[in-house]
Each structure stands twice: as C-alpha cells, then as structure tokens.
Design a protein around this nucleic acid. Sequence first.
DNA 1: TTCCAGGGGTAGA
DNA 2: TCTACCCATGGA
Length: 298
Amino acid sequence: MPLISITTPRGFRFLPTVFSHGWSELPPFSWDDDTRALSRIHRLNDGTVTRLSITGSADDTAVHVDIAGAGYWLNDAQVGEIRRVVARCLGFDQDLTPFYALARETQGYQWVERVGAGRMLISPTVWEDLAKTLLTTNTTWAQTKGMVARLVELGDTDTAGDPTFPTPEQVAALSPEALTAQTRAGYRGAYLHALALAIAENRLDPERWRDHSVSSDEVYRQLRAIKGFGDYAAGAMMRLLGRFDRLGLDSVCRTMFRTRINNGEPATDKEIAAYYEPFGSWRGLAVWMDVMRSYVEG
DNA sequence: TTCCAGGGGTAGA
DNA sequence: TCTACCCATGGA
C-alpha cells in the first residue's frame, strides 16, 4: 500500500486537530482508536476512490498517509492531490501565531499553546462542511451522525463499499422529498437540497469564502443568506473557514459558559460576547477552546 | 405523553 | 430589534 509522508507546520499537533470538534466522527471521516489513524474515503479528481489513513509521527513533525484503493503505484498528480487534501483537512495553512500570543497573555488560556490546540479539522470542500453543519442544527449529535451516515450513502464507494461524501450534483439529483426520506433530515432536507442545487448550478461558490481577499463580513452575510443558516450555523462555518471574529454560539457553548465561567448562572448572548471581546478577531476560536477544555476536563 | 437537542424561518410588533 | 409560533426527527 502506498505511503506518503508530509511535513507539518511548526507547532502542529495531530490529536488536538483531529479532535478539535466532532467531524472525526462523521463519515467519510472515521477514527480508529487501535491504530490511532484518522481515515477518510476520498474520491480523487481522476475518479479513483481511495481510503486515506492518516497517522501522526511521534514528534508531530510529520503525518503519514496510507493510501488504499489506488493500486500500488500513484502518479505525481495523485500524490500532489492527496498532499493538498490532507494539508487542507488538518489546517496546515492556518497561522495561529497571533492567537497564541494573545492566549499566552490571557489568564486561563496558556494551555492552548501548550497543547497545540486551535486548528480545526475541516473537509476538502466547503460544501461538505456546509452540509454537515446544517445537519447539526436543532438536533442531537447522535441524530446528526445518523443523518450524515445516510447522506453519504449517495456518494461513490471504494472497493470495500465505503462511501465518499456525495457531490452537490449527486445530492441535487434527488428530489427534495426523496432526499428528506433518504436522510431523515426532516425540515432540513429541503434546505440541504436547495443548497446542493445552488452549488451544482453555479449560483453559489462557497470555495470563494476561503479566499481572504473576501471580507469576513461579506462571507458572513452570504452564509446567513442560505436557508437553514442562522447565527449559530453561520458562525460555526466561519470557524471552519479560518475566520474567528464571529462567536457561533450554540447550546454547547452556552452550557460551557454557564457552568465553567459564569458560576453556574445563565448568561445572555450579549454577556457572553462581552466576555470574549478582549480576543478581538480571534473571539470565535477562544469560545471554542473553552468548549474543548470543558470536554477534556469533563 | 411531553420535552428537547451543537436552531432557524416567518410574521407581527 | 424582539417575541411568538411553527418546523420533522427520535431518544429520554
């Protein structure tokens, strides 16, 4: 099985990135506790469906990618594509230096740099992150996993029968009713179908949001214009786009704030916003670091 | 049976 | 800007 090694950026930590939020539990990602590998079923541009199994080196200076399903020999284009996909999913292009400088000077946040947290696991396409984020709204995490598992049944499969994430075209090919029935997404089904159709018909180009020449205010405005994306979903997407000036508060964040920061007292969103104000354009990441810490510490 | 989950759309003020 | 009400789904 072909193996590729990729040098990681300085300060990169594999495990905090993999477990930065719930995405490692959602197909076509999966985590194997025994091999400590993050796997992903991925369709290459030439149509080859592969299973990428990513592990971190002991000192975190590299990640190793085992590639199954592409034959023994990979051509240069395939290798280059896999390198780009892995680098993107693990947030290699994210420069956290300013955030770490801020966290270092803020009481209670020194741990962030120490453990190397802050990189968010993302998908190879903004479309996939949009679809998954939509399926986290107004539902439980268990149901999100179920909906995503049924959604990926629409994707291509590798030789083992495991599916890739479906393209917007594959999702839009179903009627809204059939998509809702397939995913059991309830009222979200129609929103998901409309989103897939808008991308498939080139009326919406979410990849453009990764371009930092587009202002964050403009990206947020476009996110909020998508049906099904309110302040939570749009704010969560901003984090996955490497833009941290929105809070993206949800019930998890509010519970964390109440129990860990506000002495058990409920706080309004305005009060939460005031607390994170010192983090400026990094406030959305600061909120999420507190959520991460609350998960780790129980 | 009712409540609610990593909320959001819409109408009406 | 704020509130009331509705929205499918499934586990507790």
